[in-house]
Design a protein around this nucleic acid. Sequence first.
DNA 1: CATATTAAGTCAACGACGCTGCCGTAATGG
DNA 2: CCATTACGGCAGCGTCGTTGACTTAATATG
Lengths: 188, 188
Amino acid sequence: MSDRKAEPPSRPAAALPADTKTLASLLFLREEEMRLAQDLLFFAYRDFTCAADRVLSELGLGRAHHRALHFIGRNPGISVSELLGILRITKQSLARVLSTLVGRGYVTQAAGRSDRRQRRLSLTAAGAGLERQLFERQRERLAGAYREAGGTAVEGFRRVMRGIMEHDARAYMDGAEREAHEPRARPA
Amino acid sequence: MSDRKAEPPSRPAAALPADTKTLASLLFLREEEMRLAQDLLFFAYRDFTCAADRVLSELGLGRAHHRALHFIGRNPGISVSELLGILRITKQSLARVLSTLVGRGYVTQAAGRSDRRQRRLSLTAAGAGLERQLFERQRERLAGAYREAGGTAVEGFRRVMRGIMEHDARAYMDGAEREAHEPRARPA
DNA sequence: CATATTAAGTCAACGACGCTGCCGTAATGG
DNA sequence: CCATTACGGCAGCGTCGTTGACTTAATATG
């Protein structure tokens, strides 16, 4: 932000009303604004994620399972390495989660048609049902926030969130938003 | 965004062009909008948190330490139980983190004046320096997002994030925002 | 004043979920 | 044919969350 520029020392103090923001307080407010943003992210994510926890713990699953279910559900036929790139965890961490989900019949694997080394992941009916159940918990919270905030705020929310994430994630979001409007199957 | 208003059920179908949104597709878009919000939260938080990871790992600290530093820095003199309420972790999880931070000289404890059972937590100069270093990493990312998105978007972002979190967290944010404008010491 | 109650520290044990490193197998592609 | 790639599995480890029980000191209350 512009707290990078040094103040010209010759600026006349008389030009400022007594209680107007000084440069120092402007800088303070800028920094404070960023710290408030940290708070916002912490609390919103804390309560967003815990919304689904009860359902998960009743099944003996964790948040890692939820994340996998979510992104497999949104990207049917996704390969393991693509999923690794989204979750940004290691193969072994994902393997533990995936083997549970496959073992309990929530996720199926199928060899890719063009490249038979790949295991294309999809949700089973049971997996889709569980994902929906988890989704509903978070949906309530998100829908309430969207409704209270209004359309303009939601658009701003999206813009800021996009800006926070890295470029590859923005590219992913572009693809997801595109698919929302032209719902056709992605090639396997 | 305009899928916010429910469609009047009596609206004649003939008024719609063939490819216009049906009720089913409106519902689909609503759900898709919520799923996109899930994606946004995941990616933004993923990249927000990892911004400070390099600094942390060089010091052999983790994200839990960062969170504690952050909230102690923002609430000098906070009690252990207040901090527990913010972080929503157990006393033992916090104890591990705190003992490291105290042991390395980042945090000090002082008995409360009105209630001497309490250990009021504050950052030392070293702790404030470390927190600042961690803050700078996240500040870059947040400030870039705020700058790109613009003031209106930031306001919307805040409104939605507030709506996602639970009531007690909103109350906390109210207090934090108030303190930003009337910077006076909180009573110990 | 005796007796809860509260704030905090502590120990033991465990679970979820990250990590690294290494090896194996199968399929792909130059 | 051989290097590379996609994936799975194993061993071991670290962080950070959990529960439960116990202690100490200070406060609040009957």
